[in-house]
Computed example of a mutant assay.
Amino acid sequence: MHKFKAGERVLYRPASPWERGSSAEIIRPLPVDGTVAFYRVRSEAEQFERVVPEERLAPLPH
C-alpha cells in the first residue's frame, strides 16, 4: 500500500550524506516490490525524475 499519491509534495531524504534533501513531487506510485513501495519523483533541485523507496520520503511540514 502506498502512503503518497500522484501530485503530492513530499520531502526527499537522500541515502547519501553528500546529497541534499529537497521537496519533490510524486509523479506516480510504482508497483510494490515485495514489501517496499516505490515512487517516481521529481525534485525541485533537479531536472530529472528518479525512483525512490517510500522510506526516503516524508510529508512536508505544514
Rank of each mutant, 00 (worst) to 15 (best):
I27K: 13
F48M: 11
I26V: 15
R56E: 12
R28H: 09
S22D: 12
G21A: 14
I27Y: 10
Y12M: 03
I26W: 09
R42M: 14
E49W: 06
G7H: 03
W18H: 13
R42A: 11
Y12W: 13
H2S: 06
I26F: 10
F48A: 13
R40K: 15
I26D: 02
E19C: 10
R13H: 05
A37I: 14
E44V: 00
P31E: 05
E49A: 15
A37W: 04
A58F: 06
V36Y: 07
K3E: 12
P59G: 05
P31Q: 07
E49L: 10
V36F: 12
E49Q: 12
A15P: 02
I26E: 05
S43K: 15
A45H: 06
S22W: 04
S43T: 13
L57C: 08
P14A: 04
F4I: 05
K3Y: 04
H2I: 04
L30T: 12
A24E: 05
L57S: 08
E55G: 01
F4Q: 06
E44G: 00
R13T: 05
P29G: 02
L60M: 15
L57M: 06
M1L: 03
P29W: 00
P31K: 12
V51K: 01
F4Y: 15
K5H: 05
P29F: 00
Q47T: 13
E49N: 10
